[in-house]
Amino acid sequence: MQVTMTVNGTEVTRDVEPRLLLVHFLRETLGLTGTHWGCDTSNCGTCVVLVDGEPVKSCTALAAMTDGHEVRTVEGLAQGAAGGGTLDPVQQGFMEEHGLQCGFCTPGMMLTARALLDREPDPDEATIREAISGQICRCTGYATIVRSIQWAAAHPAAAPTEQEVVA
């Protein structure tokens, strides 16, 4: 069957098997491997992407069900061309506050954070912890992830990337 959806602002149309999961559509069909594929049981949350602005576990959604919808992955967080663009405040926050160690959970964490801040620009700590409670991090103990999201909330205008600073 044919599916058409907008991924990070670009419309894509592909022939897929109905049983193709959204996470594999993104990673394998489109080559967007920034979305990680983890537990496969909708528990760990590393596969979270935004569908119509809402965090969704892409291992538990079909590409077919996403036909006609708008998807945002971690590749769609930074504004502008890869390498030369502007990081999303959430990405900058994860850098500033060391919100990752191994980085496996990071794409899902950042997209959930983005959706939270879009809905609630100044969340308290409990709200942040609740928002990411469906996602597992085995490195940080969550403390630095919470601080990263707080940093992003405190710096809503995208910060310049290192490259731009150097330039």
């Binding site: 949350g45 965090p55 969704v56 576990k57 538990t60 609740e130 928002a131 409670s133 469906g134 996602q135």
Partner: peptide, 9 residues
């Protein structure tokens, strides 16, 4: 019930 992301679906 489940977690906030699952509750979206």
């Amino acid at each position: 019930i489940a977690d906030p992301v699952v509750r979206n679906r």
